[in-house]
Write a protein that binds this DNA or RNA. Structure first.
Length: 548
RNA sequence: GCGCCCGUAGCUCAGUGGAUAGAGCAUCUGACUUCGGAUCAGAGGGUCGGGGGUUCGAGUCCCUCCGGGCGCGCCA
């Protein structure tokens, strides 16, 4: 706007549309540079053939005129070398933020999406052949955190768990359980964890008698029972983490319900399939893959890839417009083929997205802990959570990007969980709760009796302004997190806000019966801070305690 | 060999092409007898793996080399 007026007024030369840079506004790292800043003048220097500093001054003059008008959110405008345009927000704008938080706490931090999506997020998806172990932890947390952020950003999200309920692994589990039940030696490929013995002793009578009927397939019957039993255990473990799935999808159902056949039809119609050596192949190289991929083996069995393409069709048939897969780094070889198949079937390639997580190496006493279900040497997720706690574990994974490998030293994590920054944030929340209780005893309360004028007055003091400036960033933090599909921005924000609050607490007496008006204003700000902390913690699935 | 990811403070990690590269932990020095000291104030600690390039500006983009992880089955 200011740019347009400056051009119209002749202070800036006209710039051809094609040369116009996009207007970028960002939040400066250094608070002395104001609340918002723009590099527009530097971008305009070349097309305008003017020194960036002079352009910035022209734009600043126009913005300063705005600042004079009543109700303007612009407080002050300054120019800094080599041509930054810095804007400080007016107190009124900050008071509005506090008012908005207090008026509608439930929606604070929820930002409407420009185009809301129906998103399917599939994660964990460990086969139910044993309890979840700590190697599954990252996927569970990263997936759930992503879902929470997407929901806050206005999208509708379905959490989905995909599991194999037939085939070799289930037979294997069945064979292991049957062997123990019968007191026979374990087969070569058996699962050997203690849970297998537990399963053997828990087989219900009706299942066991069905398995022993002449001509029955005891391994499959017991395997399917055991697999469902294990799956239910996994569901319970995830519930302890605060992760709840909307859909549990069995791989077998994709065949029974014809989804794989439909996928093959689509690929056939697109001319993307061919026969060779008795197998059915997808021509993935036509889409840039380095080799073609088998869909159905020469022995007639479908590959995992076959299941995967059927699943894509099934998911889109439910009306999703975005599919997100949370996979381990070892799956990156399968990304291209699945996206290629989706493209070939006529879906938008960009709507099929994989998030690959780097590996977590678990270390105990300097030695990497093996994670083999076959050998039974693994640490379960339940055991880990019992040691370090859900809040600390959630924070640990939320605060890190998923692209970096992590060495997770179990002893160190136990020791450090006591120093986890999550407690710093929770402490700030609890401390505010305590202040509000004290205020209530003194007959003081936030909000109600305080008009915008009182708030504005309070904000002219430095401690209030700094705190409100900090909490006002929350919606933009959520927006950024959703766009980046990362949550460490939220942990960083929560830590900064807690720091800002502790500084405020040091400098500003909140509960002071001698000054009821100022107390009420400060209580409003403190209450808004508490709601913001609770909102940020809630986004991470972490509790916000009233007392610690 | 080819492909993807990673390399930032002693440690664990942030850092959508912008201003003096940040935070927590660890280390060191301090703090008001009033609202919770799980707090606060301050200090030390960096050739952003090396080298080129792109531009007003590079930890960020491009090339290359070094180091690490992971993949390259009609396995699951």
């Amino acid at each position: 706007m200011a740019w347009g007026r400056a051009t119209a007024a002749g202070t800036l030369p006209h710039v051809a549309t094609i040369e116009r840079p996009t207007v970028e506004i960002e939040r400066p790292a250094n608070p002395e540079h104001g609340d918002l800043s723009s590099n527009l003048a530097m971008k305009l220097a070349r097309p305008c053939r003017m020194a960036p500093l002079r352009i910035a001054e022209a734009l600043a003059a126009e913005l300063a005129a705005d600042a004079g008008r009543p109700g303007s959110i612009i407080g002050a405008v300054t120019v800094a070398a080599p041509g930054f345009l810095n804007v400080r927000l007016a107190d009124v704008a900050l008071a509005d933020v506090v008012g908005a938080v207090l008026a509608q706490p439930a929606v604070w931090g929820h930002v409407p999406a420009e185009t809301p999506h129906r998103v399917n997020v599939e994660f964990v998806s460990a086969n139910p052949t044993g309890p979840l172990h700590i190697g599954n932890a990252r996927g569970a947390f990263v997936g759930d955190l992503l879902c929470r952020v997407l929901e806050a950003a206005g999208h509708s999200v379905t959490r989905e768990y995909y599991f194999n309920d037939f085939g070799a692994q289930v037979r294997n589990l069945g064979a292991s359980v049957v062997a123990i039940r019968r007191g026979e030696p374990l087969p070569e490929e058996a699962y050997r964890g203690a849970y297998v013995g537990d399963l053997a002793s828990e087989i219900p009578d009706d299942v066991w008698s069905a398995a022993e009927v002449a001509g029955a397939d005891p391994v499959m019957i017991v395997g399917q029972w055991a697999s469902e039993r294990v799956r239910a255990g996994i569901e319970a473990s995830l519930a302890h983490l605060g992760v709840r799935f909307d859909v549990w999808k069995s791989e077998g159902s994709l065949y029974r319900d014809g989804w794989v056949a439909r996928a093959v039809e689509r690929l056939e119609a697109a001319g993307a399939l061919f026969q060779e050596d008795g197998a059915l192949w997808f021509r993935s190289t036509a889409f840039g893959d380095d080799k073609n991929r088998v869909v159905r083996k020469s022995n007639g069995d479908w590959t995992y890839f076959g299941s995967d393409i059927g699943y894509v069709v099934e998911k889109f048939s439910r009306g999703f417009d975005q599919l997100i897969y949370i996979w381990g780094a070892d799956h990156h070889g399968t990304v291209a083929r699945l996206r290629n198949a989706a493209t070939a079937m006529g879906y938008d390639r960009e709507a099929v997205q994989m998030i690959l997580m780097a590996w977590v190496r678990f270390i105990r006493d300097g030695v990497e802990v093996s994670m083999s279900k076959r050998s039974g040497e693994f640490i379960t997720l339940d055991e880990l959570l019992a040691e370090i706690g859900v809040d600390a574990a959630r924070w640990f994974f939320a605060a890190r990007g998923h692209t970096s490998g992590i060495d997770f030293d179990i002893e160190l994590a136990k020791k450090q969980s006591a120093e986890n920054p999550v407690y710093y944030v929770q402490y700030a929340h609890a401390r505010i709760a305590s202040i509000l209780r004290k205020a209530a005893e003194a007959g003081l309360a936030p909000g109600a009796a305080v008009g915008p004028a009182a708030l504005t007055g309070a904000l002219t003091g430095a401690p209030e302004a700094a705190l409100v400036r900090a909490l006002a960033r929350f919606p933009e933090i959520v927006e950024d997190a959703a766009a980046a599909e990362e949550t460490h921005g939220i942990t960083a924000f929560a830590t900064e806000l807690a720091t800002e609050f502790h500084a405020f607490y040091r400098d500003a007496r909140v509960v002071d019966p001698a000054e009821p008006e100022r107390s009420a204003a400060r209580l409003s700000i403190v209450r808004a801070t508490q709601l913001t902390l609770a909102g940020a913690l809630g986004l991470l699935g972490i509790s916000a305690p009233e007392a610690m």
